[in-house]
Design a protein around this nucleic acid. Structure first.
Length: 536
RNA sequence: GCUCCGGUAGUGUAGUCCGGUCAAUCAUUCCGGCCUUUCGAGCCGAAGACUCGGGUUCAAAUCCCGGCCGGAGCACCA
């Protein structure tokens, strides 16, 4: 009826007719349905075989024209990119790709104090983008643009739309909450200009004055009343190019507003904590007669596996040595998951499928791991890694070379060879479930029967495959006694054991340690191998 | 306190703008089975949701009002 409005005239008749028709159809069978359909609506036959596909990927951007979209990702580099930030990196850049627009990476680095930028983090962001396969069309440093900000500030003062306020934070809040103008609000533009020059010249104390944007002091939403645009902080900036050049710092809403206009931004997607920014910045846009970009906001992302964490507390934990660095496998940073062997494609897909919604989401790493597994499973070579190794002696075993497939289905990849004497290593976990008389299979090697638990000994067994299956014999992985020590660093901590020598040839590759999980080989030396655990 | 926003299976999402094709999509997780010389992968199957209450309507996940729950902003942080 949505499609044929004329039917709405008599909905009851339509529904009665439907009942009759449906019961008629129910008496038929699929073949007659299809025959009848080709009579009355042959064009629909094809639709029978088409599965209903949901909309995948990102929804169209409102008002977006191919070739004209300009978007940005604007982090403060006060720490490395996290899984949370990657949403902005992926979604913004992906939209730009769809519309063949321009993507800008802008460092919003104008707070030298509370969220002081970290010099290394600038590079890390660039590096993480490279990993994602995204090349920003332009990289912008807000801290390069102080003169421009000052310029616009001056204009606003001259227009009577901004004033220098000497209230303390608390005093101003009282005025604001009471919808009252503070004593400085009605100062003349000339006088304000003078105060502003003095601010810039360093004639006022740290935090003695702030430049405010005049909005509507009686606005029903207290968040929008006369907001601060510049403050005085007599501090240096971490970038050597900036250093001690400035003491009057623009705040986010001001710097962001100017930047977005100057850079010709057409669309902005960001967290919903910035939802009021648009309204605040809207005043500036109105004063200058600019058009605000189209905005979209998303909710907070929480990850089950990683509790709450803040960049500042994390930094302390790293400095105290609790974590090995910003890429410690226990951390939700991009650097960490990269090191663990999560593929950029998996992260992208994961973020894109999460879409852009205002609801707060609470996600599990499992979904990301599932995406990654699909990518990595076909390419990862298999190896044995025995944790908590225990020696197992096999009586009467002649030294031999075991040949094992590098991949269970892709046989073209060839085999790995392990030289074995009459002893192998097996996991303590497995040993604990054994008893004398247990028959089991050493994977891709031989069948054995346990003859003693302490010391652990076994006889070579000639049971057939069928008998083995019938007995539901365990299949154990194993390692040569002279194997290479392997240390696996993972979200749950470190695990050490012995692996086969072939692992040493897989530096920087992702492999699967059978019955253990996927790992990225992070370091190889004469004495040992360090692997980072990705997921099961 | 003031202002704004949101609520679809365990989790994430599609559908909500513009009511009917929704007996509600897809993915993940969990469970069962098949296959397998990995406890992996794959294949098959099953389970699982419209926050609640009113209203409008022939018809409500969809529109309206109220409640409940959750989040955000009210910084000289971003």
């Amino acid at each position: 009826m949505g499609e044929y409005p004329q039917l709405r005239a008599d909905p009851n008749a339509v529904s009665e007719a439907l009942v009759t028709i449906v019961s008629e159809i129910a008496n038929g069978n699929p073949d007659t349905w299809e025959a009848r359909l080709s009579e009355i609506a042959p064009e629909l036959i094809e639709a029978l075989s088409v599965k209903k596909e949901p909309d995948k990927g990102l929804k169209p951007l409102e008002g977006a024209e191919t070739g004209k979209v300009v978007m940005r990702f604007a982090p403060n580099p006060n720490g490395p990119a996290t899984l949370g930030s990657s949403r902005g990196m992926v979604v913004n850049s992906e939209y730009v790709k769809i519309y063949q627009g321009k993507f800008i990476l802008r460092f919003d680095d104008t707070d030298p104090d509370i969220k002081r930028p970290m010099l290394e983090a600038y590079t890390w962001y660039l590096d993480d983008f490279k990993w994602l396969g995204v090349v920003p069309d332009q990289v912008v440093y807000a801290s390069d643009h102080f003169p421009m900000y000052y310029d616009y500030a001056k204009k606003l003062i001259e227009m009577g739309k901004a004033y220098v306020c000497f209230c303390t934070g608390g005093d101003f809040k009282q005025f604001k909450d009471a919808k009252q103008a503070c004593p400085h609000r009605d100062t003349s533009p000339e006088e304000n200009l003078m105060h502003w020059e003095k601010m810039l010249a360093g004639e006022y104390e740290d935090q003695q004055a702030v430049l405010r944007i005049k909005t509507d002091i009686e606005h029903k939403d207290p968040a929008l009343r006369d907001w601060g645009a510049f403050r005085i902080r007599k501090m240096s900036h971490p970038r050597p190019e900036i250093g001690n050049k400035y003491i009057v710092w623009p705040l986010l809403d001001f710097a962001g507003a100017i930047e977005d206009h100057e850079l010709g931004m057409t669309h902005i997607i960001r967290g919903k904590d910035l939802i009021d920014s648009e309204k605040r910045q809207g005043y500036i846009y109105n004063y200058f007669g600019w058009t605000y970009p189209k905005t979209t906001h998303w909710g907070r992302v929480k990850i089950h596996e990683f509790g709450k964490f803040s960049t500042s507390t994390l930094r302390k934990s790293i400095e105290s040595g609790e974590y090995s660095g910003w890429d410690d496998p226990r951390l939700p940073t991009i650097r960490a998951i990269r090191r663990r062997g999560i593929r950029a494609e998996a992260l992208k897909k994961f973020m894109i499928e999460m879409g852009v919604g205002m609801t707060d989401v609470s996600i599990s790493m499992e979904s990301l791991y599932a995406e990654n597994r699909k990518i990595v499973d076909p390419i990862a070579n298999r190896y044995f890694f025995v944790w908590d190794p225990v020696e197992l002696e096999i009586a009467g075993m002649e030294p031999s070379v075991a040949k094992l497939p590098l991949h269970p289905t892709d046989h073209a990849r060839g085999v790995r060879e392990i030289t074995v004497g009459n002893k192998v290593l097996v996991c303590k976990d497995d040993v604990e479930k054994l008893e004398v008389g247990s028959i089991l299979r050493l994977k891709d090697f031989c069948n054995i029967e346990i003859t003693s638990l302490s010391p652990l000994q076994a006889n070579h067994s000639e049971v057939s495959l069928e008998a083995l299956k019938k007995a539901k014999a365990k299949i154990l992985h194993w390692a040569p006694v002279d194997g290479i020590p392997v240390k696996v660093r993972g979200p749950e901590g470190d695990i050490e054991g012995i692996g086969e020598h072939g692992i040493a040839a897989e530096l920087d590759k992702i492999v699967q340690f059978e019955r253990f999980g996927f790992c990225r080989i992070d370091a190889v030396s004469e004495e040992n191998v360090v692997a980072y655990f990705a997921h099961k």
